[in-house]
């Protein structure tokens, strides 16, 4: 019974994820189709005559009902064919293949720093509650939290890239197609921007949940039983913090996946975010659709994993609610 419930829940959760992606695809498609401008004219350009445009429109299937166009497009997406860039005529998959990798690397490297740092800071502040460090922490983290990511980035560039010290490259320039980790120096400031704008948020939550756990009955009980404080924290308090942190982590990764747009723009990092901002400004519809959909897919998958892990790690939740 219990097993069935758990599997049932996961299947339902998967269903929601798939449904989400599908709805996102509809919204993205409709939104881009409603953008002004005519793809046929964009492709033909200056050689265009009205007849040629009419033929091209027919070739592209632009005269068909929107639903038919959507089904065709979505069918392509399912097999990894996002269509062609209006600007260059190149397949979208060629244009964004390496950009997917670049964005993933940026996110993963940032996450690898964010989680240990945020958890360590939060736990530390919770253990030394109301100590001098905690007080400093309580004042500075909300303040840091209030700074938008691009503000952090602008300040970092001035401090470490251009004006004050020239230590790190101010823009993420590296030869197209190369793996970004081969150029660790260019990653420093973009990663630092993402880290500094998310760690305070994570640390605040970790601190709050840790304090809550430390004050819970069973931890108090463990203390009364005379267990060493370290044992209390490691064995009794921390495991109870894992689930809230998982959920927070998913939120943070989701924010990162959206927040990379700003950071990539600021540092000219060649990822999906810059591909999207460029495509929006050039009205390259297929490219807009692909970039948005891929970033959305990343968020959906992150949330899915976090939720499944949450259920796996929380016995009492496996049967709850279903």
């Amino acid at each position: 019974m219990r097993l069935w419930n758990r599997h049932g829940w996961i299947i339902r959760r998967l269903g929601v994820a798939v449904l989400s992606l599908w709805v996102v695809s509809i919204v993205v498609f409709m939104a881009t189709q409603a953008l002004p401008g005519d793809a046929a004219v964009a492709i033909l350009g200056r050689q265009a005559t009205p007849e040629a445009v009419a033929i091209m429109r027919a070739d592209l299937g632009l005269n068909r009902p929107l639903v038919t166009q959507y089904i065709d497009w979505f069918g392509g997406v399912l097999v990894g064919d996002f269509g062609e860039s209006v600007g260059s005529g190149a397949p979208i998959s060629d244009l964004i293949g390496s950009r997917i990798v670049n964005t993933a690397v940026l996110l993963v490297v940032s996450a690898v720093i964010i989680f240990p740092a945020g958890i360590a800071l939060g736990v530390f502040a919770a253990l030394r509650r109301d100590g001098p460090l905690d007080r400093v922490f309580s004042v500075t983290t909300p303040a840091m939290n209030a700074l938008p990511a691009f503000v952090v980035g602008l300040v970092l560039v001035i401090l470490f890239g251009t004006t004050v010290w020239k230590i790190f490259p101010a823009t993420a320039l590296f030869p197209p197609g190369e793996f970004p980790l081969r150029h660790p120096d260019v990653m420093v400031l973009p990663v630092a921007t993402l880290v500094l704008s998310t760690v305070p948020y994570l640390a605040l939550i970790v601190r709050a949940t840790t304090i809550e756990a430390l004050e819970s009955d069973y931890v108090q009980m463990a203390r009364l039983k005379g267990l060493r404080p370290r044992t209390v924290v490691l064995v009794h308090a921390l495991p109870n913090v894992v689930v809230p942190i998982l959920q927070t982590g998913a939120v943070i990764l989701g924010h990162l996946a959206g927040g990379v747009v700003v950071v990539e723009f600021l540092f000219r990092y060649p990822g999906l975010g810059t591909s999207l901002t460029n495509a929006v400004s050039a009205r390259d519809l297929a490219l807009i659709q692909a970039s948005t959909l891929l970033l959305a897919a990343a968020i959906v998958v992150i949330n899915l994993i976090a939720d499944i892990l949450t259920v796996q790690l929380t016995p009492r939740l496996r049967t709850a609610e279903t």
Binding site: V24, V28, A31, G258, L276, T277, T292, L295, N303
Partner: peptide, 22 residues
Amino acid sequence: MGTTDIVLAFPHLLLTLLFVAM
């Protein structure tokens, strides 16, 4: 709640950008 799950999956800033551009 299913609806909120779906909306939560939207890359919010990206779609806002898209709609404003549109």
